[in-house]
Structure formats: C-alpha cells, structure tokens
Design a protein around this nucleic acid. Sequence first.
DNA 1: ATTTAGACCTGTCAGC
DNA 2: TGCTGACAGGTCTAAA
Length: 305
Amino acid sequence: MPELPEVETTVRGLKRTIVGHTINDVRVVGNSHKLLRSHEHGPFLEIVGGGRIEDVRRRAKNVIIDLDNQHSILIHMRMSGHLLVASSQYQVTSEGKWQVKGPTGNWQPTTGNSPFADPKNQFIRIVFELSDGIILALSDLRKFATVDLFNTNALAKHLEQKYGPDPLEKTFTLDWFSQELKRRKRTIKPLLMDQAFIAGVGNIYADESLWKAKVHPLTRSDALSQSDARALYSAIRAVLSKGIALGGTSDDDYRNVAGEKGKYGLTRMAYRRAGEKCARCNTVMKRMVVGQRGTSFCPHCQKKI
DNA sequence: ATTTAGACCTGTCAGC
DNA sequence: TGCTGACAGGTCTAAA
C-alpha cells in the first residue's frame, strides 16, 4: 500500500476504534514466520498481552501503537498490507479468512457486499484480540509486512535517525527542500522516494507530484531551478493532502480499517496512466522504469532538463 | 555518493 | 484451456 495518505487514513481509523482497548491475545496465522521481525511470538505476547492502547500515530509509512507499558508496536505494511478492525460479530479462521456470526449464532463465511467479503481482505496474517471482542487484523497478500516491538523511548531515537521530515509537517520547509535538492546529485524520482530524505512518498505520489510540478522523473535534483523546486514542494504537499482527503488509493490491495476502498485512484493524473491522454495537454502518457519502479509521465509536459 | 540488481512473496492479467 | 512472463502502494543488502 501504503504510502503516507494510506497509512494516515489507517491511523485515523485506528484512533477512533482501538484506543483505550486492552490487548488480550495475539495470534499469528499459518506460517507468517518473518512477520514478527524482532521477536518470537512468545516473548512478543508476554510484553504486549494485557497492554492498554494509549495512542495510535504515524511516522513515515509506519503505524505506531503506543501501549501503557513503555512499549510501542511498530507496523510497516510494505506493498499489500492493511489493517482491519472488526466487531465481535466477526472472527478469523485458521486460514486467515473472515467469518461472520449468523442468525442462529453459528459462524459462516462473509458474503455479498460486506467489506469483509472483499477478496483483498482475506489474507489475514496476524490477529490482535482486544477487549470487548474487537479484532485488529493485518491482511497482507504478499507477506512483506512487518510487526516490531520497541521500548517507546528507543523507538523515538530509531525513527529520528532513520527518516527525513514528513512533507506535511512544519519541519518540511521550501528553503530546506530547495537547498537539499541543490546539495544532492540524485535522480529526482528515487530521491523523493528515499525515506531518509523525506518520509512518506512512494511510487504513486511521486509520479503524481512530478506530473503536477511538470518535472521529468529522471531530472537530476541539482539541475532543478528555484521555480521547479517551489512547484515540486507545493505539488508534494497538495498531492499528499488530497490523498488523505480521499482516503488513499485502492487500485490494488489497500483498504481502510473498515475494509473499504479509498478514492484517490479515481482522480489520479499520472500513476499507471501510461497509454492514456495527459489531462493537461492531451499527449499520450508514457511508461518507463526509474529506480526499478514503473513510472508514468507526460512526455510533453514533463521535459527532461 | 549514487545507482543497480536481486531478494523477499503471492496474485492477476495479457498474450500466445 | 493452459502456460509464461510481466507487473504490483516497499525496503534491504551487496556490489559496481
């Protein structure tokens, strides 16, 4: 998924639904062996079990769940992971599929239009059983997602040294951004996606930002003019804000905590639009590979410098 | 300092 | 219908 807008949408959903609840049990489904990256299941459960969820927040593309015992759970959803919250009417089978309580109290497969029947939500890898029967579950088709456990203070240092500024925070200023673009000699698209530079931009919003700012994805960062830098700075913030406002992009697996799709994909201007016409100039958009990532751009609007 | 290739996984879709 | 290859919201490591 999960770039900044998708993770932010998830975090906002979790704030409304799981804060204040206690973690009663943690169940890893099947052989999702590498999921709990820094802990075995036993020690993980030992620390997390009985913990009360104090807060849920985001840093870069990470979901952070703060407990009342000096520990924080760090979840990174990578490509296909997303978190779902269900009421006690639902349960997860040993195959990682959802079941819903039927009229006679029996468990049956989810069907029809229920978000919990969506095939993208049927790849549950870990289940957190919370107080009041609430379920927090991670669905992740590709099994790249990771769950880590940190001492909350240690986590702050870890995040600080690993990530650059969040483009929607005050620490991300135009002066700093344009200065850094000049100082570095990197290809602009991979630079925007470098989490140590700025945190939260991925393949979708990089393409969208470059298109909006009329910058070719292969431009060297130090070749950008001051006005290019300003355009890109504004574009990044506008595109990410719009992504959040529309609840993220769900062209692939991403779903919000209720299992529903985000709407950014319906209005995207560049991402996966190769072969379609540019919304600005009607030129047919092209696809190329940059930094091993599929990249769509308008060859007319986004000229290589 | 920066780029590239390969790994990690599983599913879908286009093309033959 | 069945197979094969390309492609998919990310990050990490090693090597050039």
